[in-house]
């Protein structure tokens, strides 16, 4: 006779009521990689169906917003950008910010928006938020193309922007941003699968959050005591590092200390998000 453990091994799937905190089947997600790709394709392709400009809209959107912000915040409100060309300043931080707000916003609705599909078929649920995080990065790259064109112009013609070697940290900064957005999204979608109250706060919260993140102003214009509070926001160090690296040493502050804080914060939040998502995903369909 085989031992009980050997007997359990011969089953491929064991459907039970509970499972471990971080029991995530990475191999299974890998097996479903084609589905992941399809979700990413769907996200990008369906956005610009029946438009003439197609994916160009991804690039035009931040230009329009950056122009409006330049007019309002720079010309009317006279918020300084510390030497960086305002349009470039806003283009850069808005590209990062729109990644966060869109990715976090959509992932925080993973369960409710996909209930119809999730109620009919099994696939590793984590594929959905993962696809959103990745398709967001692809869109962000398209938007960076515009940023780099404007940056090139200001580097060569006006000499108002001076990127430095820290620019090589961009992949790391984007990875942090993506993990932060996804971790926060996973937490919120898990919390709102049964009681939806939090959803109402989220919409309002994202708007407010933008003002405590250095999106429309450089951190250096705030007083030291306020700066400390703003640094506590994990996104602050990412935004400041980005501006420091691409716009010039006056436009942002590079802080190893606070980047370390953000990295730690993001890892912890991402793990908590995963654990919560993992706990909820098996049963949310009964209460969504």
């Amino acid at each position: 006779m085989s031992s009980p453990s050997a007997e359990n091994d011969q089953w491929d799937i064991n459907i039970k009521s509970t499972r471990g905190l971080l029991e995530i089947d990475i191999a299974e997600i890998w097996r479903y990689r084609d589905l992941l790709v399809m979700f990413i394709v769907k996200d990008i392709v369906t956005r610009y169906k029946q438009t003439i400009l197609g994916p160009l809209w991804f690039m035009l959107q931040p230009i329009f917003t950056a122009v409006v912000y330049t007019l309002i915040f720079s010309r009317v409100a006279k918020i300084p950008t510390n030497g960086a060309p305002p349009i470039l300043f806003y283009l850069g931080s808005l590209t990062l910010w729109s990644y966060f707000s869109e990715t976090f916003g959509i992932i925080s609705k993973t369960f409710s928006e996909n209930a119809a599909v999730l109620g009919k078929v099994y696939f590793p649920r984590l594929v959905l938020p993962l696809a959103k995080a990745i398709s967001g990065i692809i869109k962000m790259f398209m938007q960076f193309a515009i940023f780099f064109v404007v940056l090139g112009y200001h580097m060569t013609v006006t000499h108002m922007a001076s990127p430095n070697w820290y620019a090589l940290s961009l992949p790391f900064l984007l990875l942090l941003l993506a993990a932060f957005s996804m971790g926060a999204g996973l937490m919120v979608t898990s919390l709102t699968s049964k009681y939806r109250d939090l959803n109402f706060l989220i919409v309002f919260g994202i708007q407010l959050y933008m003002y405590v993140t250095p999106v429309i102003y450089p951190l250096s214009i705030t007083s030291p005591s306020k700066q400390f509070i703003l640094w506590l926001n994990p996104l602050t160090s990412i935004f400041e590092a980005f501006k420091y690296a691409f716009l010039g040493e006056n436009s942002g502050i590079w802080s190893n200390y606070w980047l370390g804080y953000t990295t730690l914060f993001t890892i912890v939040m991402f793990m908590i998000g995963l654990i919560m998502f993992n706990r909820v995903e098996k049963k949310f369909i009964d209460t969504i």
Partner: peptide, 18 residues
């Protein structure tokens, strides 16, 4: 739905091979 893993059982288990 339980066998398709859309939702999970309150008690008991289902084992599947393949």
């Amino acid at each position: 739905k339980l066998m398709s893993r859309v939702t999970s059982p309150t008690t008991g288990q289902i084992k599947i091979k393949g």
